[in-house]
Amino acid sequence: MSTTTGLGQSPYSVQVGVPAAVLKAKKVRRRLDLTLWEKLYVAEIVRGLVITSKHFFINMLGFIFPPAGKKRKVFTVYYPEEKLTLPSAYRGRPVLVAHADGSEKCVACGLCEKMCPAHAISIVAAEKAPGERYPARYTLDLGRCVYCGYCEEVCPKEAIVMSDEYQGLAQGDRNLLRFQKEQLLRPEGKVKTRLYFVRRIYSKWNY
């Protein structure tokens, strides 16, 4: 479905916010009463009009002669035709991660089921071989899920992660929102950046 997350993200180098050296204090005018010139309104209104009409004319120019090759100034995304590349911190639909052979990583430990604040997960565990558990049924009710990400945080096997999928989450029928294991399995490559991200933010595996 969604194929927008780039895989080229480097996993560890991240910079949050503006470096302190670059920050500059902004001068704020504390005096709240207007000067006489401002009270006359006219000049100030003209100043405002100049700003807005500058935007108007620049954008009109852009609409009439779209700059070739350059990124457009308007931030609006034409949604169904264009999609955003979502950051790996985005919590979309929780999905199950599959091994290379297509079987699920989940060992049906039941931690996510217990942790889920919305009781969205229900697992029926079974054994493949003696001592090797797997979920015979893994049901995720996306009508209940609140996208908190606790399941992902608690999972000891990196078997459930929040993906960047956000489409198909509105349905006319609640039953369609009850996702089964087969619908939730994704190959590991698809959720790789999220896996890196999870390791970093929760630091639970000491990689």
Binding site: T52, S53, H55, F56, N59, M60, F63, K73, V74, F75, T76, Y78
Partner: peptide, 10 residues
């Protein structure tokens, strides 16, 4: 349309 163009929208 004009409000959109003035506010950098579409």
């Amino acid at each position: 349309k004009q409000s959109a163009v003035m506010q950098d929208r579409i």
